[in-house]
Amino acid sequence: MSATPLPEDDIILAGELALRVLSPDDERAARVREAAEPAFAREVERWNEDLARLADEIPGVAPSAAVWPAVTMRLFGGRGAPTAANDNGKLAFWRAWAVGATGLLAASMVGLVVLASQPQPLPPVTAPPVVEPSITRVATLQLESGETMLTLAYDPATGRLYVAPAGEADAEGRVPHLWLMAPDGGVRLVGAVGGEAHTMELDAGLRPMAGQATAIAISMEAPGVTPPADAPLGPVVGSAEFSEL
């Protein structure tokens, strides 16, 4: 980045602007210089880079699950968006849910490890090849008591499975495992449900199954036990339709 060093006063002014300590009038004047003078603008950028390090000591705080859907709504909207052709209220809801609920999640939720799915052909879209959440399969699993145990949504376009377990940890210390159930009756282990909701990129091995599964199920496995990929060892405590939107 070369060039003559800025005068000391300008270095200070750039720092004051980055720190935001100037009065409104002084700040406006400095912004004009920032817009007009590349060297001054670079100095402001440099101060931003240095001073923003202070933020390292600010603890993170998850924003609510509504923020991300609000961002995407503002930017990409419903109407007029590239995928408007295959959009509808239900889909928009799940898209928002998938990104919001699992991306941020409440402390009471449980997370999990998941696998794959075959990307299904996307609905015809006459738009630029931009990837966005395109949930096509969802499931809500309830216990016999009617209590929701787990919600999940699958996006074949990105290979992401959004999983939000809602139940308490099992009193006996058993670990819930998620299964995909194929139309022919076969089952395939996806993985153990951990402590928090989150999103998993499905690996190629599970993809054919995830695109076709018609139901999901949860089994409770003893701690430290990984069941075979095609059959649970512990009791199946619930199953739910993995329905197409």
Partner: peptide, 15 residues
């Protein structure tokens, strides 16, 4: 790239 956007959001929104 909207997928990358979501990745960035998830990695940085808490901060």
């Amino acid at each position: 790239d909207r997928s990358a956007f979501e990745t960035v959001y998830r990695a940085t929104s808490a901060k």
